[in-house]
Design a protein around this nucleic acid. Structure first.
Lengths: 138, 138
DNA sequence: CTAAAAAAGATAAAAATAGTCTTATAGGGG
DNA sequence: CCCCTATAAGACTATTTTTATCTTTTTTAG
């Protein structure tokens, strides 16, 4: 239960690798894919999603590639995971609004809300900077 | 991401309903299914899984049905969820043993371990007694 | 203009999910 | 013993999601 998909795993590997690279050096998708051992075409799809929401910036054409959309300390693991897997939803009844007609009577509902918050908090507390081994204090 | 399946949702609904019933009254599967609005054949499969690990006790034949395998305060939401969804595994790298060759180098690994622990702790802290509205202190 | 590179969309195989159906087994009552 | 009721177990199926791949298009440097 609650398992990250391959896509999510690949997404993390890919963007963490990008975060280890020099800040302003455009990185070829094919290089990233090779470095983190992910099918290039699949990683392409993932980086397209990153690009749409600004997690990475893409450059097309000769000399093109990817760089981070903002500094590594401003990108959290939550950003990355939600970018490709969608929001953290332990159960359908826990959506932003209130689709769950049982919400106010169901005693399980608050438990899922709690799970959601905890998981989000944990993932939001980890930045790419840390994951890339560029800690503030070594 | 991390979404409970229908099976998990049905499992919770079913066993919580059973917990609301008088302690020693055998309950028909068909009655439970009707009460919690779950396909009876599907709920049957779920309760078979419960039965195997002792979460419920089953009685066959005329006058048969199900009762809880132990008192409602001794069954946690974690027990129920893991019974049908398997262990809480946020990522493949977080298994009981250590299948992940990266475990000791990968900086993401401890994050998943943390997520796993938090989720398990939350779910383990909630018993069927509470969910069934039979709180110790009302 | 051309080659390089990402973007976008279509397609497809494999796996997981969500069930259903059939047959077997067990128990109670006449 | 026979029949009815109820769960157990296993085979089977449809749908959805995951995990990709392939092709075409767009962009850009030189």
């Amino acid at each position: 239960m609650m398992e990250l998909t391959r896509k999510g795993e690949y997404a993390i590997r890919g963007i963490v690798y990008l975060a280890t690279r020099p800040d302003d050096q455009v990185c070829l998708l094919s290089d990233i894919a090779a470095a983190v051992d992910v099918p290039p075409t699949f990683l392409a799809k993932i980086f397209q999603q990153f690009s749409k929401i600004g997690l990475v910036k893409s450059y097309r054409g000769t000399g093109g590639g990817f760089i981070l959309g903002r500094t590594a300390d401003k990108i959290t693991l939550l950003d990355v995971v939600e970018a490709v897997e969608g929001p953290i939803i332990p159960n359908r009844c826990v959506t932003g609004g209130d689709d769950c007609e049982r919400s106010h009577t169901c005693k399980v509902h608050p438990v899922w809300v709690s799970v959601q918050k905890q998981v989000r908090d944990i993932l939001a507390a980890v930045s790419l900077k840390e994951l890339a081994g560029k800690q503030e204090k070594p």
